[in-house]
């Protein structure tokens, strides 16, 4: 009798167990599905947290005469593909001998799981002087393009700004020193903008950039009459990729000899 009733109770409880566990299993399945959908996330997480690649590029020497060669040396980390503009795909680490005929910006791009990195190095090529200035002093010396560019560096600007940054200020004062030492030189300042924004407005902004560079020279003692200003806006680009490093190359006040 007791046994009977007990078994009777057990059966009922058994049913209840069955019902409860079924519902739990069902609920677990539903939530389990949910968990599964999230499951792949951890496996992708390491990739997303992959180290960003780094790259360095060096040239030795950085200035040559025409016909001489330069060794480019580069080191990368965390990169899958590495390429140098004008050379193509290269090993992650290596060196290459090049013989540029004109001053060249070498640009390296390293791409890995963690993104991409870029670096630049400029090789200046000294072109033989067409006519020797002989014994004449600096006073009438227009100098060479190579000498000019070795001493007078372009100035770069922040995004949508035409104020000279500290590095641009120091470039401008170096340029002014050179120009004050070579009073025969006339200079044309080109104003450039990156490809973003509107073409018309960028012409005005480029004008402001070139004028800011001009003003820095004038306040350092260079006669305003020796400086001409041309804005190119975004009509002439030094670099045409949609990347900040490239944009920075294009936000520029460029100094050239005005012959």
């Amino acid at each position: 009798m007791i046994v009977m009733s007990r078994t009777g109770r057990r059966t009922t409880q058994g049913r209840m167990y069955a019902a409860i566990s079924t519902s739990i299993v069902a609920l677990l399945l539903t939530t389990g599905c949910h968990k599964k959908s999230k499951a792949p996330l951890p496996s992708t997480a390491p990739a997303a947290m992959a180290q960003a690649p780094t790259v360095t590029l060096a040239a030795d020497p950085v200035a040559i005469d025409v016909g001489q060669s330069v060794t480019l040396t580069w080191r990368t980390t965390n990169a899958n593909t590495v390429s140098i503009d004008g050379i193509g795909s290269v090993d992650p680490n290596g060196n290459q001998t090049v013989m540029p005929s004109t001053s060249t910006n070498f640009h390296i791009t390293a791409t890995g799981d963690g993104g991409s990195a870029e670096a630049n190095v400029r090789v200046t090529v000294r072109v033989p002087q067409p006519q020797s200035s002989g014994s004449s002093s600096n006073l009438n010396d227009m100098g060479t393009d190579a000498a000019f560019h070795a001493a007078v560096k372009d100035v770069f600007f922040d995004y949508d700004s035409y104020d000279l940054r500290p590095d641009a200020q120091s470039n401008a004062s170096q340029a002014a020193t050179y120009l004050n030492a070579h009073p025969a030189i006339k200079v044309v300042v080109g104003g450039y903008c990156d490809e973003r924004g509107s073409a018309e407005y960028n012409l005005a902004l480029g004008e402001n950039r070139a004028n800011a560079a001009k003003q820095a020279l004038v306040s350092a003692g260079v006669s305003a009459g020796r400086i001409r200003v041309v804005s190119y806006g975004k009509e002439k680009q030094f670099c045409t990729e949609a990347a900040e490093s490239c944009y920075q190359q294009n936000r520029r006040g460029q100094f050239n000899l005005d012959r």
Binding site: Y17, I20, S21, I24, L27, L28, T30, T31
Partner: peptide
């Protein structure tokens, strides 16, 4: 114990 476990699971779910 099992009932408590079931309750806990329900709460979690």
């Amino acid at each position: 114990r099992e009932f408590g476990g079931a309750l806990l699971l329900h709460v979690i779910v």
